[in-house]
């Protein structure tokens, strides 16, 4: 079973929930799919080892065959090629690897090569938790490719907790698209509620069952709760607006470690999710 932890925007406590949930359970896997800002290990402090490099195809132009016709640059929708009077210039970080330039080149001057755009790392074997994360190189655009590579390491026979990227764009769709259950982390304020609705729209578009974790509970009003009750969305957990929790967060310490009473609450949440995911999708 794959549980994605998501939110409409950053800073709502998505990583906190993912890390604490993973640490509270036995024999689970944690995948940090926020490949542009993988923060889980800031809280875990695991020693990591590289697993694989993520690559993307890009064109290489053979100057002996190239006639400088400019068809490749004209075709490229991403402006990754520029046709100059004496040369074709390539800008790899803009290239999406669609292969269109080599397809349209009338001189057969373009060959595709692969280049590294990111890396997958995992926690070394002596850690208590199976942990993988992906890092997209700074300046690269193809986050989805790194997420897809990361997802291939999920062991389907065990529960996996997935820290999703923030927002509602393609990388989030890639994560939620393969999840059995989606936990949306939010707070019950006008901003929190607004961002929650954006994320909910995505989860519903992908037909993933949804539950809510109310973070900084006690702050704000009951708008998220009222909405969830009316829509039949379960509130899975409430994390209070607690200075101690904020402090531990700022230090990079997962609060289940210092506040053991939370272990049980996360375990309960996990059992609820299992039952709900099973009911709606039939997944064990």
């Amino acid at each position: 079973m794959k549980i994605a932890i998501a939110s409409g925007k950053g800073g709502t406590g998505k990583t906190t929930v993912a890390v604490n949930l993973a640490l509270a359970l036995e024999d689970v896997q944690l995948f940090d799919c926020d490949v542009e800002e993988p923060n889980c290990n800031l809280f875990l402090g695991f020693e990591l080892e590289p697993v694989e490099e993520v690559t993307c195809l890009f064109p290489e132009i053979n100057p002996d065959k190239c006639t400088l016709c400019g068809d490749c640059a004209d075709f490229c929708r991403y402006n990754a090629l520029a046709a100059l009077p004496k040369k074709i210039l390539l800008f790899p970080s803009l290239c999406h690897g669609c292969g269109g330039c080599s397809f349209v080149c009338p001189a057969g001057a373009i060959e595709e090569k692969s280049r590294s755009i990111g890396i997958i790392e995992k926690a070394s074997s002596d850690t208590p938790l199976t942990f993988f994360h992906g890092i997209l190189n700074i300046g690269e655009a193809m986050a989805t490719l790194v997420i897809r590579s990361l997802q291939r390491h999920i062991d389907e026979s065990r529960p996996a907790i997935i820290d999703s990227p923030p927002g509602t764009a393609c990388p989030v769709l890639a994560v939620l698209g393969c999840a059995d259950y989606c936990v949306l982390v939010t707070e019950s304020t006008p901003f929190g509620f607004h961002d929650f609705l954006l994320a909910l729209e995505v989860a519903r578009a992908l037909k993933v069952p949804v539950g809510v974790v109310l973070n900084r509970d006690g702050l704000g009003d009951s708008r998220v709760e009222d909405f969830c009750r009316a829509e039949g969305i379960p509130i899975l957990l409430r994390i209070p607006n607690d200075r101690m929790i904020a402090r531990l967060y700022s230090e990079g310490i997962p609060f289940v470690k210092e506040m053991p009473e939370w272990k049980e609450k996360f375990e309960e949440m996990f059992e609820t999710i299992k039952a709900l995911a099973c009911k709606s999708t039939g997944v064990q």
């Binding site: 195809l57 075709f75 929708r77 669609c98 292969g99 269109g100 349209v104 698209g177």
Partner: peptide, 27 residues
């Protein structure tokens, strides 16, 4: 030919996967 897996079984396009690269239009 689509590198993004955007062409579905029934030959419709998954808008969330399509990156608008236009390779399918010339192929």
């Amino acid at each position: 030919i689509c590198r993004f897996g955007a062409v579905l079984e029934n030959f419709t396009i998954n808008p969330y996967s399509c990156e608008g690269c236009a390779v399918c239009t010339v192929a």
